[in-house]
Amino acid sequence: MRTAKRAQNRALDDADRVIAWQAASLLLGYPDERLLERRPLLRRVASELPAAVGGPLGRILDHLDATPPPELAAEYVATFDHRKRCCLYLTYYAHGDTRERGRALLRFKTAYREAGLVLEDGELPDHLSVVLEFAATGDPETGRRLLTEHRAGLELLRLALTDAASPWGAVLEAVSATLPPLAGNDREAVFRLAAEGPPEEEVGMEPYGGPVLLPEPKIRTGAGPAVRRGARA
């Protein structure tokens, strides 16, 4: 107990961030049997992280423990499939379905390729679960940069989930705690995105398959098996 308390009170370090990103990637996944089986491990991980990160992760785990699986599944779909404001695709917030979003997606794909990872065909690279897994297991420095570049969108997603009283808002709270505090420009971007919403021009997405549902975002290494996640958007 004393060890856990000391862990909760200490400052966040780089190792904590990597662990938190991996846990958040899993917890943003569709709550299937595989995810639910990992709850004991995720609970242990959350208990060993500083409070700013481990506390929110513990809250979503409490919800997973207390809610029957069919209700969890319905709640997840209602949150992420049926609410545009709760979109898990990071580039959507800044660019909507426009040509600029296509260029932003290419930036993600290039970062994965340079780290020796390949996103499977037909999947968009900006799904938050995929980005978090990349940050945790691929290239933490580049992953953190990508997350920071989309800080305004992450904050807008966190606020949308909070406003909807969604338990998954706790996961975004944990992710936000791993990143630098919002600066002036970031705050302005959040306010602007909240007021205006993403652009609506629906062109320029053809090379990326357009806005599609991702049943299971996957990243694979050059010669290894796919790393599978249960997230859906």
Score class of each variant (00 low, 15 high):
residue 164 A to E: 11
residue 172 L to D: 11
residue 69 P to Y: 14
residue 187 R to Y: 02
residue 45 V to N: 09
residue 56 P to G: 11
residue 125 P to I: 01
residue 169 G to W: 01
residue 97 D to L: 14
residue 118 V to D: 04
residue 189 A to K: 03
residue 180 P to H: 09
residue 46 A to I: 07
residue 181 P to K: 06
residue 118 V to C: 02
residue 119 L to S: 15
residue 80 F to N: 00
residue 111 A to Y: 04
residue 84 K to C: 03
residue 72 L to C: 07
residue 165 A to F: 08
residue 160 A to W: 02
residue 112 Y to Q: 02
residue 147 L to Q: 06
residue 115 A to T: 01
residue 46 A to H: 03
residue 93 Y to N: 03
residue 171 V to L: 11
residue 158 R to I: 05
residue 74 A to W: 10
residue 134 F to I: 05
residue 138 G to K: 01
residue 98 T to D: 09
residue 62 D to G: 11
residue 60 I to N: 03
residue 56 P to R: 04
residue 160 A to D: 12
residue 140 P to W: 12
residue 180 P to A: 08
residue 74 A to H: 12
residue 175 V to L: 13
residue 139 D to L: 14
residue 158 R to L: 08
residue 63 H to N: 07
residue 160 A to F: 05
residue 90 L to D: 00
residue 73 A to V: 15
residue 67 T to V: 10
residue 157 L to C: 10
residue 167 P to H: 12
residue 161 L to M: 09
residue 46 A to E: 14
residue 101 R to W: 08
residue 143 G to L: 02
residue 164 A to W: 06
residue 83 R to W: 10
residue 43 R to Y: 02
residue 71 E to Y: 04
residue 44 R to V: 10
residue 102 G to P: 00
residue 116 G to D: 06
residue 157 L to Y: 12
residue 142 T to K: 14
residue 140 P to A: 12
residue 134 F to V: 04
residue 148 T to F: 09
residue 62 D to M: 07
residue 75 E to A: 12
residue 54 G to Y: 03
residue 156 L to G: 06
residue 78 A to H: 14
residue 43 R to V: 06
residue 152 A to V: 04
residue 159 L to K: 01
residue 97 D to C: 11
residue 101 R to V: 11
residue 178 T to A: 04
residue 140 P to S: 11
residue 171 V to M: 12
residue 83 R to Y: 07
residue 171 V to S: 12
residue 97 D to A: 15
residue 105 L to N: 00
residue 104 A to G: 13
residue 97 D to E: 15
residue 169 G to V: 05
residue 58 G to N: 08
residue 191 F to C: 03
residue 178 T to L: 08
residue 145 R to E: 10
residue 43 R to K: 10
residue 167 P to K: 13
residue 133 E to C: 07
residue 145 R to G: 03
residue 61 L to R: 01
residue 57 L to P: 13
residue 88 L to S: 01
residue 132 L to R: 05
residue 105 L to T: 01
residue 50 P to V: 04
residue 83 R to Q: 14
residue 93 Y to P: 01
residue 182 L to K: 04
residue 182 L to Y: 01
residue 150 H to K: 06
residue 185 N to M: 13
residue 136 A to Y: 05
residue 129 S to I: 01
residue 100 E to M: 08
residue 92 Y to G: 00
residue 115 A to C: 05
residue 129 S to G: 15
residue 155 E to F: 03
residue 58 G to V: 02
residue 51 A to E: 14
residue 159 L to G: 05
residue 173 E to Y: 02
residue 138 G to V: 03
residue 191 F to I: 10
residue 106 L to N: 14
residue 107 R to F: 02
residue 73 A to W: 07
residue 73 A to M: 15
residue 51 A to G: 08
residue 135 A to V: 00
residue 127 H to Y: 13
residue 120 E to K: 13
residue 119 L to N: 15
residue 112 Y to G: 00
residue 190 V to H: 05
residue 149 E to F: 03
residue 89 Y to S: 10
residue 130 V to Q: 08
residue 64 L to Y: 15
residue 132 L to N: 02
residue 168 W to I: 10
residue 130 V to L: 15
residue 61 L to S: 05
residue 179 L to K: 05
residue 145 R to H: 10
residue 74 A to T: 13
residue 122 G to K: 09
residue 92 Y to T: 09
